[in-house]
Design a protein around this nucleic acid. Structure first.
Length: 716
DNA sequence: TTAGGGTTAG
């Protein structure tokens, strides 16, 4: 029953409004209500575009929440056309739409990548509040236009509009894109002034920015200012340490994170495992594996793939294989990881068997096999593989092409090399620095100094220190050191005097044993007050050692107390090449005492020292401890050293045992060395075996195949 | 109502 008041009100209304108008209005209201319901039903049943298609069926405004809902749908579906329809309806039937809906529209356009539409709405100054500024800054920031985001932010700041935490989140995101440290520091100052520096999101963004700018001290300081770092904060610090190549610290931070009971993200696991792979740090990798088991991440494909890689790179192929063999889904990355694991450590047959079984292959899978062949100098097999690759796929990238050029260089096949050069040219890969240097190296190793010269000149701005070294080495290889000397002048002109360039120059001197020029360079640096950093010092040690001036090399080395591995390796190899085996072993001991982690180069020096000094048993001990104690997979050169060690001192039984248990077939130089040793020490059984294997090698196949069937462009 | 990090293979 309606009450008296309602009855009275209704009768007054009836008297005031003419009967027909009231009827129309009521009708319209009913219509809009029906249409609104219909729109909402369409959205709820997943037919959002159908909902938008009927908005103009009645010439009247909707309640504001309906527009908000429609914009929200447009955002999540990235539907630009629909967004324009909704905005058009909004402004047509609402002469002054509320600011919050304008902000929604700007956000929606931002999400759809329509920055011009967003800016059009933003530029109507009559309707703006703080949210409008935020929406515009976010729109630019999310579309990778950090510069404009920052410009709008400075305009906002100048206009006296107060920023909030959301504003800074977008602004800092833009700083991370622009990577301008001066601007970033100014924004950091404002975050502090506004009192937002305890906001974990903003502080994590600052950690991210400093890390991306390689200011890790600032990043670390910022990180420790976060009261309760969350999973993203930890993820940022681990990732940033990884990307500045500070792998140890990335691993340390991962374990600190685990200690605080914050659940690591998949991203964090993969970053920490990559860091372990690069050190390499097997024990820590195993501990991360244990954490992954504990928090039930071992079913995650990315974590499993990262674990396989970690085990493989740390030399634990057994565990890598165990993970690969366990039931669960494998993808192309899982397969490529295991193929690469076998190929990289010389077990090329097993790698190939797995490769043949792959359900699908990507360019990286092909490249991984090719890396295996080239590391073992199996040029013929590599070439067959390239032919097969060419038949099966068109997917070649700059990495494949660099490897193909290495194979051409290994085979000294300039015709094939020129075809590869033509292929690079046609596919616009020749301007990639790696490819360009591989082309230069190929011409040098194939003996075409003229082509080297032309290509070196064409490389122009692409030239780097690798190019200079490759170019100058090709002169040295041709016994034309004198002709290389005038190049130094040009090189100095081109690479205007930073320490890095001096190290290039010194490396070039070392390559051609130009002691005088090396000394002059050293003197020039001292006279002109150039800082001798660790890289230059390594180059000086290397140059003096190669030029048989070990006394100077030691002096330069001893002037520094650096623990840089490359510098120590330069000294180790320098002593090894100058027949100072005792000093090498002394340096190796000092490295252990000072906690400097050895790598494969150090062990090469150590094994060379054992050869020089006749320490056969000790050499074997060092060889075994490489993988056992140092997680370093022996490379071809280490196997060569062991063969030389046994051959030179007549340890024929040990030689036989060693050679027949190698994870790959011996190369021609290895077989030749074994054969010679067998003749010298009269070991007919092994000698016959070596001779038989040598006879199996056919002479190099003369050029008869067309890898790249199109006409090649001979740019030279 | 609106922010941050961004994955593994050569």
């Amino acid at each position: 029953m309606p009450c008296m008041g309602e009855k009275l009100g209704a009768s007054v209304l009836k008297k005031l409004i003419p009967k027909n108008i009231l009827k129309t209005k009521t009708h319209q209201l009913h219509d809009i209500q029906a249409l609104t319901n219909s729109i909402l039903n369409h959205i709820d049943s997943g037919h959002f575009k159908k909902a938008v298609s009927i908005v103009f069926s009645k010439p009247a405004p909707f309640p504001f929440p309906i527009y908000a809902r429609l914009f929200q749908q447009c955002s999540s579906e990235r539907a630009a056309i629909e967004a324009r329809i909704v905005e058009s309806h909004l402004v047509t039937f609402n002469p002054r739409p509320p600011v919050f809906l304008i902000n929604r529209a700007i956000e929606t356009y931002g999400k759809c990548g329509c920055l011009k539409d967003a800016r059009g709405l933003f530029d109507d100054r009559r309707q703006r509040n703080g949210g409008t500024w935020n929406a515009m800054i976010t729109a630019y920031s999310q579309n990778g236009d950090g510069e404009n985001a920052l410009l709008v932010f400075w305009e906002m700041h100048r206009s006296g509009v107060l920023a909030n935490e959301i504003t800074f989140a977008s602004v800092l995101g833009s700083c991370a894109g622009v990577l301008d440290i001066y601007v970033s520091r100014q924004v950091h100052g404002l975050v502090v002034n506004y009192g937002f520096c305890f906001n974990a999101i903003l502080a994590s963004s600052l950690v991210d920015i400093y890390g991306k700018c390689w200011f890790m001290d600032d990043a670390r300081r910022m990180f420790y200012e976060i009261r309760n770092p969350n999973a993203i904060s930890w993820n940022v610090i681990v990732r940033r340490y990884l990307e500045v190549d500070n792998y140890e610290e990335a691993v340390v931070m991962f374990f600190k994170m685990v200690g605080t009971n914050v659940m690591p993200l998949t991203f964090t696991f993969s970053s920490a495992l990559v860091a372990c792979s690069n050190i390499p740090a097997l024990k820590e990798g195993e501990q991360i594996h244990a954490v992954a088991v504990k928090v039930c991440f071992v079913k995650d494909k990315i974590v499993v793939n990262s674990l396989i890689n970690m085990y493989a790179k740390c030399g634990d192929l057994v565990d890598a294989r165990r993970l690969f063999d366990q039931p669960g889904s494998r993808d192309v990355i899982t397969w490529t990881s295991i193929v690469s694991a076998y190929a990289a450590c010389g077990r090329i047959r097993e790698a190939r068997k797995l490769f043949n079984d792959m359900p699908e292959r990507g360019v990286i899978s092909w490249n991984a096999m090719l890396v295996g062949y080239t590391r073992l100098f199996q040029w013929e097999e590599a070439l067959d593989f390239i032919f097969w690759m060419h038949r099966e796929t068109n997917d070649f990238d700059s990495f494949s092409l660099s490897l193909i050029l290495n194979v051409c260089a290994g085979l000294s096949d300039i015709l094939l090399g020129k075809q590869a050069h033509g292929f690079a040219y046609r596919h616009d890969l020749h301007s990639n620095t790696f490819v360009a240097n591989a082309i230069l190296d190929m011409y040098g190793k194939c003996g075409s100094l003229r082509s080297s010269r032309v290509w070196f000149s064409e490389m122009g701005h692409l030239r780097d220190r690798v190019s200079w070294n490759a170019f100058i080495s090709s002169y040295a290889r041709h016994g034309l050191s004198e002709k290389a000397i005038p190049l130094f002048g040009k090189m100095i002109l081109e690479t205007t005097g930073t320490e890095l360039d001096f190290s290039t120059l010194l490396a070039a001197c070392a390559n051609i044993f130009a002691l005088d020029e090396g000394k002059q360079t050293h003197a020039y640096m001292l006279r002109n007050g150039f800082n001798i950093d660790v890289v230059t010092r390594g180059a000086l040690v290397d140059m003096y050692s190669k030029c048989r001036c070990l006394e100077y090399a030691i002096k330069v080395f001893e002037e520094s107390s650096s623990s840089d591995l490359i510098l120590w390796n330069s000294m180790v190899l320098g002593c090894a090449h100058n027949g100072k085996g005792g000093e090498v072993l002394g340096l190796f001991e000092s490295m252990q005492e000072e906690g400097i982690k050895c790598d494969n180069v150090t062990f090469q020096g150590v094994l060379l020292a054992c050869i020089g000094e006749g320490f056969v048993d000790l050499g074997k001990q060092y060889f075994d401890s490489m993988s056992k104690d140092f997680c370093i997979i022996p490379r071809l050169e280490h196997y060569e050293c062991m063969i030389e060690l046994y051959s030179r001192y007549g340890y024929m039984d040990e030689l036989k045992d060693f050679v027949q248990n190698m994870p790959f077939h011996p190369t021609v130089p290895m077989l030749t060395r074994i054969f010679d040793a067998c003749r010298e020490y009269r070991h007919s059984e092994l000698g016959e075996w070596a001779a038989q294997r040598l006879n199996e090698f056919k002479p190099l196949i003369p050029f008869q195949f067309e890898i790249f069937p199109d006409n090649h462009i001979d740019t030279l």
